[in-house]
């Protein structure tokens, strides 16, 4: 096995082992953090399929995440307030809805978006996501701008998502399955064509492949996986707001993929971990320095509210000096 595979395995084992240990040692919040990053990692892995391997930079991926979450929230809402049947809390129904809605949305918008290239593609995917965003904002019943509280989580036989460990377990297993799935796809003939189209679309077309169809299929698969991640996210936050689907969230998903390393299997996972953990680490360590300064100098200097500054600087440094994101760091040592 290569060094990269070892690191991937080690990282995934660490992600499986550490959060429960934190939980058992009375740090439930760190399990929450891990669940959040695992779910976002699924979305990032799905985005990487089209962005990294397909060269299709989608700036609207948060819409799928949001639609997936609303696919949990809306049935739960009607179950609670309109007394529709218990099927409305069934997890398989939620996931089925999430995947069906997001893949349909991906199919329709993808068919239009894929007519464009490059930056135009980035912007048109964002446009469709913004439309969904404003659509949800305008639906008063589901909370509009204020968002919707999900009063009951998805129900699966033998699984209780109200238990944080079980929810984490589901998210983790899903992440592993999705990583294997994406790995399988990119190494298949289908994936080869997708990657070839990224490198040189005209040549691939000349070779007799209808790249448009290949890219559309990849776009739909990616959207469906993100929708699934959204359903998990809704179960995790038990709250959804349109803000979860605006362009900032799409941007953050994109940054996770780029930060981790595009067109790698582990990259998006590392990227989302870095993105989520850095905030905690920066805020906590700045708060710690605040206390330290307070103790030594006897004056209160506010630092923790400015955590975006070191965070932004880190992003810039990584872009300027580390090619290929965090995976680039790992790969470089291999040479």
């Amino acid at each position: 096995m290569t060094r990269k595979t070892w690191i991937t395995l080690a990282a995934m084992v660490a992600l499986a082992v550490l959060p429960p240990v934190f939980y058992w040692t009375g740090n439930a919040f760190y399990l929450d953090l891990a669940t959040r990053l695992t779910i976002l990692a699924i979305a990032a892995v799905s985005l990487n399929l089209i962005l990294g391997y397909g060269g299709l930079i989608s700036f609207g991926h948060a819409a799928y995440l949001g639609l997936g979450a609303y696919a949990v929230g809306i049935p739960a809402y009607h179950w609670l307030y309109d007394g529709i049947g218990d099927w409305a809390t069934n997890g398989f129904v939620h996931i089925g809805l999430a995947v069906a809605i997001t893949s349909t949305f991906a199919l329709i918008t993808g068919a239009i978006c894929l007519r464009t290239r490059g930056v135009y593609f980035i912007m048109i995917t964002m446009a469709f996501a913004q439309m969904i965003y404003y659509l949800i904002v305008s639906i008063e019943t589901y909370g509009g701008d204020d968002g919707l509280v999900i009063d009951t989580r998805s129900e699966f036989p033998g699984l209780n998502l109200d238990k944080p460990l079980q929810l984490f377990g589901l998210a983790y297993v899903s992440l592993v399955v999705v990583m294997l799935l994406v790995n399988m796809i990119v190494n298949s003939r289908f994936g080869m064509v997708l990657q070839a189209a990224k490198g040189n679309n005209e040549r691939t077309v000349t070779l007799g492949f209808n790249t448009y169809i290949f890219q559309l299929v990849a776009y739909v698969i990616s959207g469906a996986i993100a929708g699934y991640a959204g359903a998990l996210l809704g179960n995790f936050t038990t709250f959804i707001s349109p803000e979860m689907m605006d362009w900032r969230t799409s941007g953050e998903l994109m940054f996770m993929v780029i930060l981790g390393g595009t067109a790698t299997i582990l990259g998006p996972v590392l990227g989302s971990a870095a993105f989520i953990l850095l905030e905690e680490i920066l805020v906590d360590s700045l708060t710690w320095v605040e206390h330290l300064l307070d103790g030594i100098l006897g004056m209160k200097i506010e630092l923790s509210n400015y955590w975006h500054l070191p965070f932004g600087l880190l992003l810039i440094i990584i872009v300027l000096y580390v090619r290929g994101g965090l995976m680039g760091l790992i790969n470089r040592k291999e040479d």
Partner: peptide
């Protein structure tokens, strides 16, 4: 705790206060 003027971030920081 800082809610960053956003419901989701507000909920997250509340969780942290309660749990951590």
């Amino acid at each position: 705790g800082d809610d960053q003027f956003a419901p989701e971030a507000g909920k997250q920081v509340t969780d942290k206060l309660v749990k951590q």
